[in-house]
């Protein structure tokens, strides 16, 4: 009875074909991502005592301060970027005027700039020969510089984050249901209440998702700090230093795992809370 098996055979044939199509990605992912990550995890536990590296990372002043500084920096960058993007995004989504699409293009074209280049742009703004230095010379005769301090990093990260957060906010603002606002008005709600209860609530999923991405990229950003070449110890710089100068691979691995856990967790939580897709897709 050949034919009785037909359904199963065909289905089996189909699954085999699908598996074959997936196989290359499976191999790449297993060999060059999962395996290395596992090795990283194993190495992060090497040392005198089990978990000593993690203990050290969370207790020793230089690691802890690096972690806390990076967290604070990333949180403030996220909040400021969200505020700027909500104002600009709502304005751009709700008004039509000549040159609007050009304005949107100009605001979002630095989307593709890598961190190093943004570091250089910050030097252009706040470095020793930068715009603010010229301004300072004109006003009080001293060169105002901020590029090489934590302020430089802050400006750079905000610059880096504005395009992607702004795009998400514009897209979400365009999808807001105007009838909700009109309904709120019919109840006599004030502008402030409408903004808080209707608009911000409507934007919340987008803000959560893009805010999480902004936070995660700020935590892991390396290029800007590198280009500014300061002694600011953001976590990625600390990891880099441990690895190259200190040759403390186990410590670098432990810090990397910590950093990866934090960024992954924040993105995961945002995805759970917003129901939207939180990933740094442009």
């Amino acid at each position: 009875m050949k034919y009785t098996l037909s359904g199963r055979l065909l289905r089996g044939e189909q699954s085999a074909r699908l598996l074959l199509l997936l196989l290359p990605v499976l191999i790449i992912s297993a060999a060059f991502f999962l395996l290395p990550l596992a090795r990283l995890l194993v190495i992060s536990f090497e040392g005198d005592q089990w978990g000593a590296n993690y203990w050290q990372a969370l207790t020793e002043a230089r690691y802890l301060s690096s972690l806390v500084d990076t967290l604070l920096l990333s949180v403030s960058v996220t909040l400021v970027t969200l505020a700027i993007s909500v104002v600009c995004g709502l304005f751009l989504a709700r008004n039509e005027f000549a040159g609007k699409s050009l304005l949107v293009s100009l605001l979002t074209f630095p989307l593709a700039f890598p961190g190093v280049v943004i570091g250089f742009l910050v030097i252009m703004l706040g470095g020793r020969q930068g715009l603010s230095a010229e301004l300072g010379l004109m006003i009080d005769g001293s060169r105002w510089t901020f590029a090489y301090s934590i302020a430089g990093l802050f400006v750079g990260y905000v610059y880096f984050s504005i395009p992607r957060v702004l795009l998400t906010v514009i897209a979400a603002a365009e999808k807001l249901d105007y009838q909700l606002e009109e309904a709120a008005r019919s109840f006599g709600a004030s502008r402030y209440r409408i903004f808080r209860d209707v608009i911000l609530t409507g934007l919340k999923p987008a803000l959560l998702a893009s805010g999480a991405i902004c936070f995660a990229t700020s935590m892991g950003a390396f290029g800007t700090a590198f280009a500014l070449a300061t002694d600011i110890n953001v976590l990625p710089m600390t990891i880099y230093t441990e690895f190259t100068l200190g040759a403390n691979i186990a410590m670098a691995a432990a810090l990397s795992i910590l950093l990866g856990l934090i960024t992954w967790l924040v993105l995961f939580l945002a995805r759970m809370l917003s129901g939207a897709d939180a990933s740094p897709a442009a």
Binding site: F33, P36, R39, A221, A253, S256, G260, T263, S279, A281
Partner: peptide, 17 residues
């Protein structure tokens, strides 16, 4: 997952492996 993990960590893992 690589999207959610800083590139530095991935690079470090690759070098170690």
């Amino acid at each position: 997952l690589p999207v959610a993990i800083p590139g530095l960590a991935i690079a470090l893992a690759l070098i170690i492996a």
